[in-house]
Design a protein around this nucleic acid. Structure first.
Length: 797
DNA sequence: AGCACGCCGACT
DNA sequence: GTCGGCGTGCTC
């Protein structure tokens, strides 16, 4: 038998299966979708078996060295999905496969140089390399020509050899556990007796108990256990356990179902119908904030689980706060796997294993959870479907929504796209009848949506208020403090970060390698580039005019916190941003503290915009509503509307009515006006007109091709070539723009230019893009991609 | 991606 | 003459 293997070399020349002989011993256990170790040239590489065949056209083939899995990591469905993904997103097969499995399984073969004979026989320089060790990591061997030649000589004489080991990615977590060894003679002390008795009663003979757990349950200290081990009452062993990242979540799985409103009941019935009838129908669930979308997901999943089916629930990365996860854990207990980026590599592996081994029926997670290896899917939910984090911004540049739709067709199961502010694309599809439209126009608590006040910051400024806070917002914050109610303050930092400017000549600190202003980091007094990491010290005098009037601009959360604390000295403030949530678990802890009423005001960035559900919040404030509005992005209006609506939704979710203050310099802008009146439909119609006029989605599909090169002319020339090819091969309707310099015209000393394709129906485009990709792929410069193709880009940077 | 092969300039 | 620079092309 022969295995067709996709090897782990992401280049154009190797983006196809290679044939390997499967020795009988391996053939028995080998199957499609397993990872293998194969010889490739002079090296050994990992790869995926994509097929097993009985013949090969090749005269001589090498043999598969090793199987790396007992069961396939990619089943037939996922193998096919991977092929589709590579085709659609114009990436290499291996890249697609790797992105579908947890990082812990992306094993790389590691080369080690190993000693075969006495070290004294080796030349001095090679001996020095080994020191006292018998093996050295090949990556540690210096690239010294002389040394490399000597090593090769020694290898030819059989004194040295190359060994290949798989890099251990800390797959399983092991903990110390104990088992009863003897019980007859009672131990010396009372504590020990207690502990042993507890072991015997709770666990009996031969059963392993993790020491941590025993200590907690029997309320004994580690030293008692140690003594028992020392005196042979207990035997110490190691067991493999799942890491449990959500130790705080109550996992009883007994939370009561909520009573549904009649709107909810209707929607649920439609979802259930599509599940039971195995209809691959996409449904768009448009429900206002607080309308109880999650409860519908929960009840629909509850039913399909009883029928033995499985469900995937996707949530945006940043909102993957415990609140959503906790609700699933509370309802379904240990039947849920959680996959997101805040977990360690090992934790993610454990959660993935639970799915693969069919120990759970529900996966809740961010974008990549859409690849959860379920085999009997009954439903895929994408919550907050408009969120941009569902699009992956590196290869493979896929959108989780499109992958979900593919899988739904494969499994004949529905997809539910939920949002209070659906994306233009999705709502347009629903309006056309491509998606089934479901709506929840009212909040479950029957309360109206909160009142929104627009504050014109230009007037504030004219009236002499130079603070970040308007008089009205400050007034309302004081009022909440007095009443003991809570407030959230939202500050959007995007496009508004702290940069340094000279007030005398207008000089702005720029990165010398990228066409972008440097960001000021107060913590270490450094100016940093967010794209290449370049750092420099904050200058005391302007490098251009030598004036001392140089200062940083922009409003960081830290500065806002300081100002707020000065204005309201008695307020207890929790700040949530990248700085304060970097540590593992910090995000959860801060939210928990806020929920427990340990603070009056929650001040934060993007991450507090959604999913936050605390009954005592009665005021939401948006400090600068228009920072998003002026980004060079055709989705700027949509993003602004979505954000304002989401943040507004945080207030008044329970009994007490909520209030919202939006501070803006453009109070007359339609995105802000319509957010104020909670009028999604009018916004959709207005924005749709704009998109039609400008030729953007949902009227046109987009594909962005970016070229990056140290030489500006080379990048432009490539762009011109691509433009010519596209123009001459695409239909009349297609519009090819560019090449033009990218919005960020230089990153890491490489000039960037782009071509944009706008099209409606171009079946040949995918193939054409692949050809361009292959053509330009050869010209890889400095380990960096020369050409980047983004189907359906989110950003044009 | 590596790694070998191969074809040219500068040196023990 | 040899060593070593890096352009080119292949890896089942």
């Amino acid at each position: 038998m022969y295995a067709k293997v996709i090897v782990d070399v992401p280049t154009g020349g190797t983006d196809r299966p290679f044939d390997y002989y499967l020795p009988e011993a391996l053939a028995e256990n080998a199957s499609k979708g397993m990872r293998v170790l194969v010889p490739f040239g002079q090296r050994k590489l990992t790869g995926f078996i994509v097929d097993i065949v009985s013949e090969t056209k090749l005269e001589k083939v090498k043999s598969v060295s090793e199987l790396l899995d007992l069961t396939p990591v990619l089943n037939n469905e996922l193998l096919r999905l991977g092929e589709w993904l590579a085709t659609e997103t114009i990436c290499f097969q291996i890249t697609a496969f790797q992105s579908m499995i947890p990082a812990a399984m992306r094993a790389k073969a590691m080369k080690k140089l190993s000693l075969l004979s006495k070290r004294e026989k080796l030349p001095m320089n090679v001996q020095a390399l080994f020191g006292q060790a018998d093996e050295v990591d090949w990556a540690q061997v210096p690239a010294d020509a002389r040394l490399l030649r000597d090593i090769r000589n020694e290898a030819e004489q059989g004194h040295l050899t190359m060994k290949y080991a798989l890099k251990d990615q800390a797959k399983h977590r092991k903990v110390k556990a104990v088992v009863i060894q003897r019980y007859e003679t009672p131990p010396a002390t009372e504590k020990q007796k207690q502990a042993l008795l507890f072991m015997a009663e709770q666990y009996g003979e031969g059963e392993l108990v993790a020491i941590q757990i025993l200590m907690k349950q029997a309320a004994i200290s580690r030293s008692v256990v140690n003594t028992l081990i020392k005196n042979d009452y207990l035997q110490e062993k190691e067991i493999v356990i799942d890491r449990n990242p959500y130790t705080d979540a109550e996992e009883d799985g007994n939370e009561e179902k909520a009573t549904l409103t009649s709107d909810q009941t209707d929607v649920l019935a439609k979802v259930k119908k599509n599940i039971t009838q195995s209809q691959a129908t996409p449904m768009l669930l448009h429900g206002v904030t607080g309308s109880g979308k999650t409860e519908i997901y929960l009840q629909a999943i509850d039913q399909l689980m009883e029928a033995g089916k499985e469900a995937i629930v996707l949530v945006p990365e940043i909102s993957l706060t415990p609140q959503m996860v906790e609700r699933f854990k509370k309802r379904f207990g240990a039947n849920v796997a959680v996959l997101h980026s805040a977990l360690s590599v090992g934790e993610r592996f454990d959660e993935w294993k639970k799915i693969q081994e069919k120990r759970v029926q529900v996966a809740v997670g961010a974008r990549s959870a859409v690849f959860a290896p379920f085999t009997n899917l009954g439903l895929i939910v994408i919550d907050e479907e408009h969120e941009s984090s569902y699009k992956q911004e590196e290869y493979p540049r896929y959108h989780a929504r499109e992958v979900a739709l593919w899988r739904s067709r494969y499994h004949d199961c529905p997809v539910v796209l939920g949002s209070a502010t659906p994306s233009m694309e999705s709502y347009a599809r629903a309006a056309k009848g491509v998606y089934e439209l479901l709506s929840l126009p009212e909040r479950v608590n029957q309360k109206p949506l909160p009142d929104i006040e627009l504050v014109d910051m230009r007037l504030e400024m004219r009236e002499g208020n130079r603070s970040v806070f308007s008089t009205s917002l400050l007034e309302k914050l004081r009022d909440r403090l007095k009443k003991g109610e809570q407030s959230v303050l939202f500050l959007n930092r995007r496009g508004f970060s702290t940069f340094v400017m000279c007030r005398n000549c207008g000089y702005v600190g720029m990165c010398p390698h990228c066409e972008i202003s440097l960001t000021y980091h107060q913590r270490d007094g450094q100016l940093k580039c967010h794209y290449c990491g370049h750092e420099e010290r904050l200058y005391e005098r302007c490098p251009s005019c030598e004036s001392a009037h140089i200062r940083y601009f922009g409003t960081g959360t830290q500065r806002v916190e300081e100002e707020l604390q000065q204005l309201l000295p008695e307020a207890r403030i929790i700040r949530m941003d990248n700085d304060t949530t970097r540590k593992k678990g910090a995000h959860e802890r801060l939210l928990k503290n806020f929920g427990a009423g340990e603070a009056d005001i929650l001040l934060g960035t993007q991450m507090i915009a959604k999913g936050l559900d605390f009954p005592n919040i009665t005021l939401a404030g948006i400090l600068a509503a228009d920072t998003l509005l002026h980004l060079p992005d055709f989705r700027a209006q949509e993003r602004t509307f979505q954000l304002l609506t989401q943040v507004s939704g945080r207030a008044g979710r329970d009994e007490k009515a909520g209030e919202v203050v939006i501070q803006t310099y453009n109070p007359e802008h339609y995105a802000i006006q319509l957010a104020q009146s909670h009028d999604y439909l009018s916004f959709f119609k207005k924005e749709l007109g704009q998109r039609k006029q400008a030729g953007y989605p949902p009227y046109y599909y987009l594909t962005l091709i970016t070229f990056a090169h140290p030489n500006y002319a080379t990048a432009m020339k490539a762009g011109e070539h691509a433009g010519r090819v596209l123009r001459s091969n695409l239909g009349e309707d297609a519009i090819v723009l560019g090449p033009t310099p990218s919005p960020i015209a230089r990153i890491k000393d490489r000039y960037r230019c782009q071509c944009m394709v706008k099209y409606k129906d171009e079946p040949a485009l995918t193939e054409l893009l692949r050809e361009l990709f292959t053509y330009f792929q050869k010209e890889i410069q400095q380990d960096q991609r020369f050409i980047t193709i983004d189907r359906h880009p989110n950003m044009f940077m």
